[in-house]
Nucleic acid binder design. Sequence first.
DNA 1: ACTTACCGTAAGCCATGACTTACGATATGA
DNA 2: TCATATCGTAAGTCATGGCTTACGGTAAGT
Lengths: 102, 102
Amino acid sequence: MTYDMIFTALADPRRRNILQQIATQPMSVAQLADQHNVSRPAISQHLKILTDAGLLSVTPKGTKRIYQINRDGLEPVRAYIDGFWDDALTAFQDHIINQTKD
Amino acid sequence: MTYDMIFTALADPRRRNILQQIATQPMSVAQLADQHNVSRPAISQHLKILTDAGLLSVTPKGTKRIYQINRDGLEPVRAYIDGFWDDALTAFQDHIINQTKD
DNA sequence: ACTTACCGTAAGCCATGACTTACGATATGA
DNA sequence: TCATATCGTAAGTCATGGCTTACGGTAAGT
């Protein structure tokens, strides 16, 4: 659940697609494999990356495994951006200060 | 400036590091290359990716090229997360509705 | 004009990543 | 118990990505 894992997970278009799909409705692996034009193991691997990043969670249902969104998973990203914004802002203020100093 | 370019740019730890560094203070290429333990061309390539993603902007200063933060560059990411949150939320509401239906 | 400083790009190398097929494991139903 | 459904993982393949060295190009100073 590091920044690295989250951003790496979000870097792949197919994973973002899967994520959005699961966000609107929890799905099984085979269900996802049907909609995307790749093999089932490929989907499984993507789901592992998304899950390890904290963006998904699983609940077994018989032989199926239903993947659903972890609604707090994207919060670190927001925090990252916010902290970033603060950095840029204070740096900008410092810049202004230095300018007025001259 | 697509989602793909932005998330790909943010996926690399070194690029996130560079981004944060430039956020606190605009810098030249050689300056960055000194602090990171890689060659100058490597930094140049990272800067190109970050710039193409809309996260940085350049202003030539003599022979130097000063890279600075584009403060609006991360806004699409926030928008992406927000839209996502909405999707998950409405889906969750639908789920509740379906549950009460049973 | 010449040298120096600073930089972007091309070409090549090597690790990483996304995909496939093959296999093994678990839960369900007859 | 046996067959079926569903899935995760291992191994191998091919494209992508980050790095290096080599080269060329522009701005400033003498």
